[in-house]
Nucleic acid binder design. Structure first.
Length: 343
DNA sequence: AGCCAGGCTTGGT
DNA sequence: ACCAAGCATGGC
């Protein structure tokens, strides 16, 4: 039995429970402990989530979603009715036992400090293509700039989701199904959004799906450069083409042992060791993958090797042996701790 | 092996 | 208001 509470859908006084009854609703509360939504969505794993009026607006696949931290877990609201919320649980990884992961971390002062300062920080599970493309665009960029590039990319190459009805289109009239209560607005075959949040400023940048590899592959390099991605444009274009023409199978790394999956990803243009590690961890769920960026490098040097000269290679060796089977999660704590809580 | 490749932020004046 | 320096990673 899943630890999920289902909320009633407000449709003319009628009360339905999603999932249990197999009916669709536009909101749900995923009950979960030890989950800091803000820290998780703002820890350099994902780049499209915007905080707005004490909630977070974003896109998961073709779903426009608003997430709110509530007492017992995370409340989600969507644009259209949803019958099965597994995609949301998968993205948020709400069924992961965080305490069990933390118990595998090394018991040393730096790790205790990082964990103590970042309660409820989680590792998400992203779509491989979106994750790969995002991290190709991340190289030598700061998080604010990565956000801007991806936002432009989605605006110009993604599908508009403004009035998007998840699943099949619902006819305008007559009304028979719950969750499609609005009168026709002239656009046949779509319904109007159920929630206020789906209109206005709060959803800027969260109105488009992430463009497919096919869509990017068909773009001109100059169009991509116009999204301010600079020298990353040819990298993204080449990677998109490798995937679009079937030369590279995004599902393959999933079935490979970690080292081989990493090597496979590094066959893609614009993907080196660091970006491969990010995709292994954030998209494919290789829990031991340990991406080392400047923040993590600084954290490792300051916390584990103060006043000692250590090569980057040595840091990698240390990381590979010291942090255990969930090193990637440990890395996320070190990253967030160093970036937001130290000096 | 060292240099180059956007553009945004930061800090100095 | 303006300008220079810093960032941060893969490719040649």
């Amino acid at each position: 039995m899943r630890s999920v509470k289902c909320e009633a859908v407000k449709t003319g006084g009628e009360s339905t429970t999603a999932e249990i009854a197999g009916a669709a609703s536009t909101s749900i509360v995923l009950s979960v402990r030890d989950y800091d939504l803000a820290a998780t969505l703002d820890s350099g794993q994902v780049f499209r989530w915007q905080e707005h009026q004490s909630g977070w607006n974003g896109v998961i696949g073709k779903h426009r979603v608003r997430l709110i931290q509530v007492r017992d877990g995370i409340r989600a609201e969507t644009a259209g009715p949803v019958e099965n919320w597994d995609w949301l649980r998968d993205f948020l990884q709400t069924e992961v036992d965080l305490a069990a992961i933390l118990s595998t971390f090394p018991d040393d002062p730096p790790m205790r400090a990082a964990v103590g300062a970042c309660h409820g920080l989680r590792v998400l599970r992203q779509d491989p293509w979106e994750c790969l493309a995002s991290f190709i665009l991340s190289s030598t960029k700061q998080i604010v700039q990565i956000r801007q590039i991806i936002s432009l990319l989605c605006e110009r190459f993604g599908e508009p989701l403004i009035w998007h009805q998840v699943g099949r289109a619902v006819p305008c009239a007559p009304r028979t199904t719950p969750g499609s209560q609005q009168p026709c607005d002239g656009a046949h075959g779509v319904t109007r959004p159920a929630m206020k949040f789906l209109e206005g400023e709060g959803m800027k940048g969260a109105q488009f799906s992430f463009p497919t590899p096919q869509k990017i592959a068909a773009a001109a390099e100059s169009e991509l450069r116009a999204c301010k991605m600079g020298f990353r444009a040819p990298h993204l274009l080449a990677a998109a083409r490798q995937i679009a023409d079937g030369q590279f199978d995004l599902e393959r790394p999933r079935q490979l042992p970690p080292a081989e999956a990493r090597a496979e990803l590094m066959k893609l243009r614009g993907v080196g060791g660091k970006i491969a590690d990010c995709v292994l961890l954030f998209a494919y769920g290789f829990d031991a993958a340990f991406p080392v960026d400047v923040w993590v490098e600084r954290a490792l040097r300051q916390l584990y090797f103060p006043r000692r000269r250590v090569t980057l290679k040595r840091l990698h060796q240390f990381a590979a042996t010291h942090f255990g089977p969930h090193a990637g999660c440990a890395q996320q704590y070190l990253f967030h701790y160093r970036r937001t809580k130290m000096k």
